[in-house]
C-alpha cells in the first residue's frame, strides 16, 4: 500500500511538470507581447525594449521557464500585467473562496446522493424511486444559473435567510461567508447530485444481481445487510471516480454560479484575465486547476486501492 502511494505521488509530480511545461510553452508562443500591451501602442521601441529587459522577457526560453517553475513551486507566479500586484496576492484569496465553495458542493453531493441512491436502489419501482427518477431528470436538465436565481428568490427573498447580492468576504465574517455560500453550493451541487444518484443506483442494482448476494442471503442477512455490508463497497467505485471528476468540473461550472451570486471567485478572475491577456494570472490559474485535478485524481486512485484490494496488486 505504501509503495502504491509513493508511486502515485511520483507520477503526480511528473504529470504536473509536463503540464507546467506545456502551459508555459503555449503562453510564450501565442502572439501578443506583454511589454507592448502594458505600455500601449504609442510607446517607443526603446521603452518597450527596456521593459522587456526588466520583465526578463529577453532571456532564453528554458531560463525563463525554470525561473517561472521555481517561483511557481514556491507559490510565486510573478506580477500581474493588468494590476500592478503579485499574482499570488490577486488570486490567493479567491482560491479560498472557490475551495470552500467546491468542498461544500462536493459534501452536499455525497451527503445527498449516497443515502438516496441506496434507498432508491433498495426500493426499486417504489413510489419514492419513481418520484426521484422524475426529480433527477429535472435536476439534470435545470441550468445552474436558473437554479441559482430560484434559490436566491426562495432563500433570500421569501425566507430571508441571507441577503441576496450582499456577498460577505471570508476575511470579514467567516460565519456569514459560509452562510452566504450555502445557496451557491446547492446550486452547484444539485445537478451533480442527480447524476450521482442515478450512477450509484444503477451500480448497486447491478452488484446486487451478482452471485455473492445469494451467498450473503444464505447466511441469514436481510436486504439491508446485503446492501450496506456488501453491495455498497462493491458499487461505490464508479461514484468515487465521478466525485473525483466533479472537483475538476467545479471551477468551470462555478463561473456561472459566481456571476449569479456575485462572488469574486477564480472563474471570474480567469475570464477577465483572459480578456486583457494578463498571462501570468491565466497561467497561475491553469496551473492551480491542473494541480487540483491531479491531486484529486491521485486521491481517488488511493481511495480505490483502499476500497478494492485488487487495484493494489498492479
Amino acid at each position: 500500500m505504501g509503495k502504491y502511494v509513493v508511486k502515485k505521488i511520483a507520477s503526480l509530480a511528473l504529470t504536473l511538470l509536463a503540464v507546467s511545461f506545456v502551459v508555459f510553452f503555449l503562453f510564450s508562443v501565442i502572439p501578443g507581447d506583454p511589454a507592448t500591451s502594458k505600455l500601449g501602442t504609442n510607446a517607443t521601441p526603446e521603452k518597450v525594449e527596456a521593459l522587456r529587459e526588466e520583465l526578463g522577457l529577453n532571456a532564453p526560453f528554458m531560463v525563463r521557464y525554470f525561473k517561472w517553475l521555481v517561483g511557481a513551486i514556491r507559490g510565486d507566479f510573478g506580477d500581474s500585467y493588468a494590476y500592478a500586484m503579485p499574482v499570488k496576492q490577486l488570486i490567493g484569496g479567491k482560491l479560498v473562496i472557490n475551495g470552500v465553495l467546491s468542498l461544500m458542493a462536493i459534501f452536499i453531493v455525497c451527503a445527498v446522493s449516497v443515502p438516496i441512491g441506496v434507498y432508491t436502489a433498495k426500493h426499486t419501482g417504489g413510489l419514492i424511486d419513481r418520484v426521484m427518477t422524475v426529480i433527477n431528470q429535472i435536476a439534470m436538465a435545470f441550468p445552474p444559473f436558473l437554479l441559482g436565481l430560484l434559490l436566491t428568490f426562495v432563500f433570500g427573498m421569501v425566507l430571508r435567510l441571507f441577503s441576496p447580492g450582499a456577498y460577505v468576504g471570508y476575511q470579514t465574517n467567516f460565519g456569514k461567508f459560509l452562510l452566504y455560500m450555502i445557496c451557491p453550493a446547492i446550486a452547484l451541487a444539485l445537478p451533480k447530485c442527480a447524476m450521482c444518484i442515478k450512477l450509484l443506483r444503477t451500480n448497486i442494482l447491478e452488484e446486487a444481481k451478482k452471485d455473492y448476494s445469494k451467498t450473503v442471503y444464505s447466511k441469514g442477512n436481510n436486504t439491508t445487510g446485503l446492501l450496506y455490508k456488501y453491495v455498497l463497497k462493491n458499487a461505490i467505485m464508479p461514484t468515487i471516480t465521478f466525485v473525483g471528476m466533479l472537483f475538476a468540473d467545479m471551477i468551470a461550472s462555478g463561473i456561472v454560479i459566481e456571476q449569479t451570486f456575485g462572488i469574486p471567485g477564480l472563474g471570474r478572475s480567469l475570464l477577465s484575465a483572459i480578456s486583457v491577456r494578463d498571462y501570468p494570472v491565466v497561467m497561475a490559474i491553469i496551473m492551480l486547476i491542473a494541480f487540483g485535478i491531479v491531486v484529486v485524481s491521485a486521491i481517488t486512485d488511493v481511495i480505490h486501492a483502499i476500497v478494492d484490494p485488487r487495484v493494489r496488486e498492479e
Binding site: K210, D211, S218, G220
Partner: peptide, 22 residues
C-alpha cells in the same frame, strides 16, 4: 432468515463469484 446461515448452510458452484471481491 433465522434459519439461513444457522440451520441451513449453502455452498455455491463458483467460489470466485460467490464471494464479494472487496
Amino acid at each position: 432468515r433465522a434459519l439461513q446461515g444457522k440451520e441451513i448452510g449453502f455452498i455455491f458452484q463458483d467460489p470466485m463469484t460467490a464471494f464479494s471481491p472487496v
